[in-house]
Design a protein around this nucleic acid. Structure first.
Length: 558
RNA sequence: GGGCGAGUGGCUUAGUCCGGAUAGAGCGUUAGCCUCCUAAGCUAAUGGUCGGGGGUUCAAAUCCCCCCUCGCCCGCCA
């Protein structure tokens, strides 16, 4: 409906002006849609923009299609404004009351989305979960937009970090503390191992190198040890991710691409590229012609593969099995991401699309697992949940403890996810406990609250006849906001920017809260009551869909 | 040094790709609103040289150039 009306207006404008492209924008408070086309015509026609705008309005008023759609056309100075008609509003509200509002028809395109993929050498921290939350929100939006999607976690199970962890378990005291989570335990051993390395760098580095060679060579005992520690760490991650409503469909192990020969095959292809450089066994690419100053190393002089080689194999595999590949990566991966894309292109393989996000740091500086300088996601979840529980207990003392705990868990997830997803990915942030624990108005719980409020009204209302003929200004404003939801989903997947959905959800909750205070619903009567209840149902359902897409529980009471 | 990203009221930020109508929010501060559908709410007030300087344009937070500040990257680590 939105698309129909917009398309009709565009078509009419093209016919009327003779231009191919019409600048169309949201009219804000003036209109639902507006064009500044009169400015661009002013030069050509050598007439004042105001006069041209009036002429366009006159011409469009004769357009039958726009008249049938009930579009009101007017000029304000040089701007030509369009206000959508009642038919548009009714259709939008009707659609919004249906389950699955905002879903697009299924598409054939198969997409693989990779996110989080943190090294399994310690718990996920507040920087990692920015990746998880951006990735998971995108995944949900893509599913809603009708794509066939597989979400993957790429497990770095043969990197130096893991070798250091394994060395630590071989040589250091490593009993878990009582109640200690697997990933936290591994971080402790990793940090301790690094401290040992600092004491006797030469000897231990040699031992770690040996472990890496053994694993690359497929030594069963070493492979088993690596896998065991990595799996334990991933078990820890699983708990964290589940607490954040983040889901992966598949965990892909890096070492598989060495063992199945894919890495060797991709290296074979690279050797045939004109950009290749050899220095003994060392194999690298010279990508200077594409603006990369440093050589891109593929194989070390000891014959082992580097991360880049395995990553090339992985992405070649993705490209043969999926139509599109999307990676969510931190800003520190910008250079290697670009090198990867460039090399894949040279190999004739479709490169992945990469969504980068900037860093989350601590007030005292960058986070480092190695140095033990990080705020773990588990600690964050625990503290925010505690805070949420206090809040629920204050507000709803009559509820039993289990219910309050459940609400607190959902509110905490909402607080954390929303706080992270609302910020555009290109903004670097500093983690702040005070802000994390503060449920300000521009928050996930605020949106959950608006939804719960709508649910409460509907619960009290009982049966009513759906009615889509809206009248008052507040009703129409709210309905038009509801109508925007499908466009937002489309924009999120098109621009790979999930924070647009966060902004929208907040605006919708805001608009509903204003409506709620101006227009009585349950106290109104007859048709007025019916149409307002219909509108509340539409808002409730739209908020529900928006929250679910944000990975936030749309709880019915709080 | 080079590359990438950011700089918007006291603080956090949307808008920048695709230039247009008084730059939107939230926090804070101040003043109101619960015999009335959930006050995690609502209504106001307060507060902005959109980092600085040039340029393009009828029109610049938005485009171009220069500069400043901050973050990230520039490994035979991952």
């Amino acid at each position: 409906m939105v698309f129909d009306t917009t398309a009709a207006i565009k078509k009419a404008l093209i016919e009327c002006t003779g231009l191919d492209e019409i600048p169309l924008a949201d009219g804000g408070e003036h209109a639902d849609l507006a064009t500044t086309v009169a400015f661009s015509l002013a030069k050509v026609k050598k007439q004042a923009p105001v006069k041209i705008a009036q002429e366009i309005v006159e011409a469009l008023k004769k357009n039958k299609e726009l008249a049938d759609l009930g579009v009101t056309i007017g000029a304000k100075g040089p701007y030509v404004n369009f206000v959508f008609g009642k038919a548009y509003v009714s259709a939008a509200v009707k659609a919004a009351t249906q389950p699955g509002y905002g879903n697009f028809p299924p598409k054939e395109t198969r997409i693989v989305l990779e996110h989080t993929s943190a090294n399994p050498n310690g718990p996920l921290h507040v920087g990692h979960i920015r990746n998880s939350i951006i990735g998971d929100t995108l995944a949900r939006a893509f599913r809603k937009a009708g794509y066939r999607l597989e979400v993957q976690y790429y497990v770095n199970d043969m990197g130096r970090q893991i070798a250091i962890v394994t060395w630590g378990f071989d040589h250091l005291e490593h009993e878990p503390l009582p109640g200690e989570k697997e990933d936290a335990h591994i971080a402790r051993v990793y940090i301790a191992a690094n401290r040992e390395i600092d004491k006797d760098k030469e000897r231990i580095t040699k031992e770690v190198d040996e472990l890496m060679e053994l694993v690359e060579g497929g030594d069963p005992e070493t492979v088993k040890k690596f896998r065991r520690e990595v799996s334990r760490c991933l078990d820890g991650f699983a708990v964290t991710l589940k607490n954040l409503n983040v889901r992966h469909d598949r965990f892909v192990w890096e070492s598989d691409f060495v063992r199945n020969g894919d890495t060797k095959r991709v290296i074979g292809k690279i050797e045939k590229l004109p950009q290749v450089t050899h220095e003994g066994t060392l194999l690298a690419l010279d990508l200077a012609e594409f603006g990369f100053a440093n050589k891109y190393v593929i194989r070390r002089s000891d014959g082992t593969s580097v991360y880049a080689a395995r990553d090339l194999a992985f992405h070649t595999w993705k490209s043969t099995n999926f139509d599109r590949a999307i990676d969510v990566l931190g800003a520190d991966h910008k250079l290697i991401g670009a090198q990867l894309q460039c090399t894949l292109k040279l190999l004739g393989v479709k490169p992945p699309e990469i969504v980068h996000f900037e860093f989350v740091s601590l007030p005292e500086g960058s986070m480092s697992t190695r140095a033990g300088k990080f705020v773990s996601a588990d600690d964050l979840i625990e503290e925010v949940t505690k805070r949420a529980f206090e809040e629920v207990t204050t507000r709803r003392p009559e509820l039993d403890e289990a219910t309050r705990k459940s609400i607190a868990a959902s509110v905490a997830r909402a607080g954390i996810r929303y706080d992270i997803v609302k910020i555009s990915p290109e903004k670097s942030t500093v983690f702040d406990w005070k802000e994390a624990l503060d449920f300000e108005r521009q928050s996930g719980p605020y949106i959950q609250y608006a939804h719960a409020r709508a649910c409460s009204i509907l619960d009290k209302a009982g049966n009513f006849e759906q009615c889509y003929e809206l009248e008052t200004e507040q009703e129409i404003i709210l309905a038009k906001k509801i109508a925007k939801f499908p466009e937002v989903i489309e924009k999120v997947v098109c621009e790979l920017r999930p924070h647009l959905l966060a902004t929208y959800a907040h605006e919708l909750a805001d608009t509903f809260n204003s409506f709620y205070h101006y227009e009585p619903v349950l106290k109104s009567e007859g048709k007025v009551r019916d149409r307002r209840l219909t509108l509340v149902k539409a808002v409730q359902n739209t908020l529900h869909e928006a929250l679910e897409t944000l990975g936030i529980d749309a709880i019915r009471t709080m």
